[in-house]
Design a protein around this nucleic acid. Structure first.
Lengths: 231, 231
DNA sequence: AGTTGTCATTGACTGGGATCAAAAACCAGA
DNA sequence: TCTGGTTTTTGATCCCAGTCAATGACAACT
């Protein structure tokens, strides 16, 4: 019933490689779902019953230690694929950080469909390989970088994902953070206080500006990149 | 020329799903290579020209920051797949830590073959998804855990991979570490000194024994698991 | 405007792991 | 058995980021 042809992520999600009739099959299996900010779609440790596409909004992937320490494992943007295909357990929770729209499949349905559509499997493979590369970069951040470096890397990463005209040398880079300080800390392996101090420090050095607490302006890209340890 | 039928990882590597004639095609494309301990097969940042299977020995995946800080990203055991399929850049180096035997393919050859053999692609996808899960677990380790917890997690992980009879409740667990203290530090985001101190501490508490510096005996699994923050 | 609750910032202090330095254990080859 | 080189252990000290605590900013209500 969801008219995939009008889906905002039709061309960028995992569905982009589907032919018209294959799209129809997926359309029948999929289900549009609206999530409120804070709502959790999948829980860590649960059976992996769902997978899906992010259609709109931002979600976070998190896992926690038995004593409550939280680690954020990633941020999912529109057209990203979420959930654990071909697996029985979901190893992390998926929670909406803004109001969000997702298109979910029963995992078993998706697995069957994907098996029958090599293009979808291939696309999923490429996405997964890309995510693995990404995750390895984060491993370097968490394993070896100082607090300043971590925050700088994060800001550069966010600019790249959120700022369309980041390529142009001259344009002023400005974006709205998808997550708050606490989540930034959980992602970067820092406390909220340390994140805050680092941002204050970057602002005092005129490298960035913070028009309001959710917005970042990058004044000096060179300096920020230097802080991130990228020469 | 490589007789795949006698390959030690024939049944466990990515090739296990190949039919006899498909195996022949892969066999022609593949090339057996021997590496000496310390030899590097692929360099971080290089074009991704090679992929392959580990046939024998242990390799490590590493990436370094511009100032030389090294992060180990993983350890590859026999039957593991190495290299970046369907990508242009190798984001990490692959280096033998023991003498090793690998079966390599030109990446473009492998990509073509894999595209034509859905089973291989599917297997690669499942491996990649598994690795991603694994990597997310390490992210938790690096982001949130104390030095003791990190070392304990590492030892438990190694026991699981290296000790065949780890399942049996009663058996004494003993194994040889595939890597030295420096590499352990690089994997766990700690210095060599801290790793050494943590191991000394675990030994003094009679939780483990170290018959020689490359060997570990686990006396008290319960206590070690507790140190790893697994209740 | 005032109240309440959430989130961010700032400050003072602490501690775990890094750093620096030296000794000890181990290994390989002569 | 000695010897030089590597790896690991141990010790002393330091510092970055964590912790604890208070304050400030802001949005959503009355």
């Amino acid at each position: 019933m969801a008219t995939c042809s009008q889906c905002p992520v039709r061309e960028s999600s995992i569905c982009h490689s589907l032919s018209a009739d294959a799209l129809d099959r997926f359309g029948r299996a999929g289900r549009r779902q609206t999530l409120l900010a804070g709502q959790t779609l999948m829980w860590e440790g649960e059976d992996a019953l769902l997978v899906g596409n992010v259609v709109d909004g931002i979600l976070k992937l998190t896992a926690s230690l038995s004593d409550g320490r939280d680690q954020m494992l990633g941020i999912a943007f529109p057209s990203d694929f979420i959930g654990r295909a071909f697996g029985t357990k979901t190893r992390h929770s998926v929670t909406a950080v803004t109001d969000a729209e997702v298109c979910t499949f029963r995992r078993s349905d998706f697995d069957d469909l994907a098996r029958r559509h090599a293009d979808v499997e291939h696309d999923l493979l490429k996405r997964t390989l890309g995510e693995l590369d990404q995750m390895r970069k984060w491993m370097q951040v968490l394993g070896k970088m100082t607090a300043t470096e971590r925050v700088a890397v994060f800001l550069i990463e966010m600019a790249a994902r959120l700022c369309p005209d980041v390529e142009s040398e001259t344009a002023l880079i400005r974006f709205t953070l998808p997550i708050g300080r606490q989540d930034m800390g959980d992602l970067l392996g820092l406390t909220i206080e340390t994140v805050s101090r680092q941002i204050t420090n970057l602002r005092q050095r005129q490298i960035i500006g913070t028009p309001d607490r959710r917005s970042i302006v990058i004044y000096d890209r060179r300096a920020l990149a230097a802080c991130a340890g990228m020469g």
